[in-house]
Computed example of a mutant assay.
Amino acid sequence: MRGSSTAEAEERRMWLRLTPDEQAALTAAGHLKVWQPGQVLALQGSPPSSVFVVLRGWVKVSATNYRGDDAPLAARGPSEIVGELGPISGLARTATMSAIDEVHTLVVTREKFVGVLRARPRITEEILRMAAIRLQQSDRLRLESGGPDFPQRLAAVLLELALQHESGQAGEQVELRFNQGELAGFARVSRSTLIRGLDELRKLGVVRTARQRITITQPLALRELAAGRPPPPPASQT
């Protein structure tokens, strides 16, 4: 994808950036819990009673606005921490977190989490680093969703979502764990408009769709589309 995308993805996986002693401290302070698909880890507006380290599976983060619309915000995967800012601020949850597939987490209560942070301030530094990266990604996603040409705009939105998910090498396929309704929310369009845009991208051979997921099959070609340039032909046609 982008030259720095894999490095940025690794920066966001905070658990991997912690030392063994820091991981052990959080593990000792928490307990393991398994969530089934669709199960809610924490509700928007609820007290920030726990922090979750995702060990396996994917968690969807979404929020409801004042009009009652449910908007997806992100998906968090293995080695990421979710729900960490509420326990630090003491404010109610600003988003709902739910399991996309079977999710295994380390659950640390707010009191124990704050205690670990006080004893090991470097963990706090890593949380700030992760929060800054996520804020930058969110800003880019909002920027990309405002372009005039929809296929180009959709390509840019998919590219930015892929950056959040990426864990492999540049050019590899990326599987996005969102359904079409959620993707329409990211792109700020109706579902019918999204379907037409996806159909165009499918015809170009850059995406493949299935229930609850969209696979970017040609990430480099998608990047060309996002930049407003014709994509190169697939490798099999060269």
Rank of each mutant, 00 (worst) to 15 (best):
K60F: 00
L183S: 02
T19Y: 06
F178H: 04
R110G: 04
V116M: 05
R196L: 05
I195E: 09
R140A: 09
A184Y: 01
T19F: 06
R67N: 11
R110K: 12
S138V: 13
I195A: 14
S145C: 11
L135H: 14
T27H: 15
A155Y: 03
L32M: 15
G205Y: 02
G197Q: 04
Q152S: 11
N179A: 02
I216A: 02
P47V: 07
A131N: 12
S89N: 09
L141C: 11
E160W: 01
R191K: 13
E224T: 09
T105A: 12
D70M: 10
S167N: 07
T27L: 14
M14V: 13
S236L: 13
E22P: 07
T209N: 05
A132S: 15
A119K: 14
A187M: 02
V34Y: 08
F150K: 05
T193M: 07
I123Q: 00
S236V: 12
L73N: 03
Q237R: 15
I123V: 08
I88N: 01
R122S: 14
L201N: 03
S192H: 13
L220K: 13
I214G: 02
G168H: 02
R188C: 03
R129C: 04
F113E: 00
V189S: 00
V116L: 04
A29G: 14
P234V: 05
A184K: 01
L225E: 00
G205M: 06
P234I: 05
R153W: 04
S89H: 10
P37W: 12
L91C: 08
G83P: 00
V53T: 05
E111G: 11
I100H: 11
V34N: 13
L183V: 05
L106K: 08
G185F: 01
R13V: 11
I81M: 02
Q136P: 00
L18R: 13
A28R: 15
E126H: 13
D199A: 14
D149V: 10
Q237W: 11
Q218S: 08
E175P: 02
E10N: 11
D139A: 15
S46M: 06
E160C: 03
G45A: 05
E80K: 01
D21F: 11
A227C: 08
E102W: 04
R110W: 03
D139Q: 14
S4L: 09
L183M: 07
W15P: 10
T64D: 03
G228W: 08
S98P: 08
V207N: 00
P47G: 05
T109L: 04
G90L: 04
A7Y: 10
S62N: 08
R211K: 15
